[in-house]
Structure formats: structure tokens, C-alpha cells
Design a protein around this nucleic acid. Structure first.
Lengths: 155, 155
DNA sequence: GCCTATTAGTTGCAATCGTAACTATCGATT
DNA sequence: AATCGATAGTTACGATTGCAACTAATAGGC
């Protein structure tokens, strides 16, 4: 019955969540104060801004691990700000291709400046060794996610 | 201006959140279906169950990186289930010491069995190498968090 | 001993979220 | 070409959240 040897500190969901929440909260406070951006909005902007080509809402959701309703509302909000434009696919009219406008790319540039500065703080806090290990580990998870995504495409 | 070289894939908050969300969602579905537990409730139960001694609500919040109102409501819910009992501190009556009841420890035992099984799946998915790296990286972050916590005690 | 600042925890309320149901479209089968 | 199932995205609505304000208690001047 009770797994006596269970170590919460070795349980990834708990640990990852704690770490993610910790680093996210402070950064969120920054862009919220300066741009009135919500977290899903920033994450959507980031996904689109970092992509060389237009993405669909579903792709944004997969890339950022956000629920599709979150993405949908974030897209609407960004569109109202005129940071993003939609265009429908010629072949499949269910799809919409999402792209940043000029204003959107400008905002993304400013936000990434903030992000870089924040990342630099984190780098210093965590140290080079830890950071390297973390990146390697995250890459392993990301590969695993991609593989899992392929097989069990999620709801 | 725009940090042209910005790599979203090297930006910790985004990456960690994505990974955390991915691994958390599936596990949450399990304990939600079987125990009608919410995420904050499971996290609070986990924090208390893994601790050798009683904790205060604030400590639970720090340990799990949850907002204090989340903790407060989770504690109430667990108390109503009689999985947790509060006792006030003799010296400082603002504090309440939180402990699992016998029923709570039993539930924790069952939940950790689920957790172990899930962790085993993750282990396999991620691979030994990735897992080791991830743990090392998370440890580095956790140390950094503790240090930061000491200096800037958070709201 | 008082006044003020701080801390632990709770709660009202507006904002946000996720589930489920919905619309619209496409693909496959017959 | 009609039907069925699957997929992209939206939305209504109840549940959950977080901010700000609150109560209660402690701690630190003075």
C-alpha cells in the first residue's frame, strides 16, 4: 500500500511546477505592470514572435502547453490590440493562420528585451552548471513530450 | 532595441511552464477522477504528507509555490474531508500548525502510490540521462529559490 | 504601556479558467 | 452526394483564481 519510500522531492510534476511557478511569477509581474498583458497573452505573443512562419491556434497551444480556450481568448485579445492578424487558409477554412503585425513584432521585441534581462538574472542566480544541467534535462522532456504528442494527440 | 538573438527556447519561464504543465495535467486528471481532489488540494496534501513535522500555511505556500489564498482554501477543503487538522501555536496565536489525520495519511499513501506509478512512466519516457540532468538542474534552481526566498521574502 | 508596522490567515468580489456543448468545415465511407 | 466521424476554433456557464481589503495577533520602537 503506502509507498513508504516515496520522495516528493523526486516527483517531477510537483518539482517542475514549483520551479516554473517561481520563475514565472516575477516575470509576469513585470509585463503585466508595463503592458497589461496576461500570461496567456504573453505566451501566445512569444510563440508567434519566435516562429519564422505563421502558426495556427492549435500549434500555439501545443507549443506553449496551453488549453485551446486560453489560446482562443489570448488571440482575440492580441487581435484587438492590433498586435496580431488572422488569415484563413485557402485549402482548409477551419484553420486560421496567425501572424504578428508590425506593432506586434515591435512589442515582441520590447518584451524579449525584458525577458533577456530577466533570464540574465536567473542565469546568475542558478549558476552555469545548474543551468546547463537544467537545459539538458528540459530538452529530454521536450523530446519526450513531442514523442508523446505524436502518439496520443491530446484531447 | 529588439534583442534579435532572443531564443524563446532558452527562456526558462516559458520552457519550465511548458514542461510543468505537460507533466501535471495528466497526473491531475488521475487524482481528480479518483478522489475529486483539486490541484491545490493535492499539493497541500503532498507538502504535509512528505513533511516529518507539522507545517504552517505559510510554509506550505513556500514549499509548493502556491498563493496563500490557494493554500487557505485547500486547507479548509482538506479539513472538511477530515484529512487534516489544525492546532494553534501556544506562543503565537496567529500561527496554525497543520497536520494530516490518520485518514489523511492513508489517503496520502494511496496518492503516492499513484504518483510513483506515474513517475515511473515519466522515467521511462524521459530516459535515465535526461532525468539525471533534470534533477541536477532542478536542484540548482531550488537552491537559488531558497536563497532568493531568504532575501526577498515575497509578499 | 502605547503607537505603528508587520505578519498569519481569511474573505468579498471581479476576473480568469476549463468543461462541455456548439458551429463550421473537412475527410472518408458507402 | 449523403452520412458519419474527426478536427479547428468559439462560447456559455459554473468553478476557480488572485487582488485587495479585512481581522487578529505579534514585534519593535519610544
Amino acid at each position: 500500500m503506502a509507498a513508504e519510500g516515496f520522495e516528493l522531492n523526486a516527483f517531477l510534476p510537483y518539482r517542475l511546477n514549483r520551479a516554473a511557478e517561481f520563475v514565472a511569477v516575477r516575470f509576469a509581474a513585470e509585463y503585466k505592470a508595463r503592458y497589461q498583458l496576461t500570461r496567456p497573452e504573453w505566451r501566445t505573443l512569444a510563440a508567434l514572435g519566435s516562429s519564422a512562419r505563421a502558426m495556427t491556434a492549435t500549434e500555439v497551444g501545443t507549443h506553449s502547453a496551453m488549453h485551446k480556450t486560453k489560446v482562443s481568448r489570448a488571440v482575440s485579445a492580441l487581435e484587438e490590440r492590433r498586435w496580431l492578424k488572422r488569415s484563413e487558409d485557402a485549402d482548409d477554412r477551419r484553420l486560421e493562420h496567425l501572424e504578428l503585425t508590425k506593432a506586434g513584432r515591435l512589442a515582441y521585441g520590447e518584451l524579449t528585451d525584458l525577458a533577456s534581462a530577466y533570464q540574465a538574472q536567473l542565469d546568475e542566480l542558478i549558476g552555469v552548471g545548474g543551468l546547463k544541467a537544467l537545459c539538458a534535462g528540459l530538452e529530454a522532456i521536450e523530446r519526450a513530450i513531442d514523442r508523446a504528442e505524436e502518439r496520443h494527440p491530446r484531447k
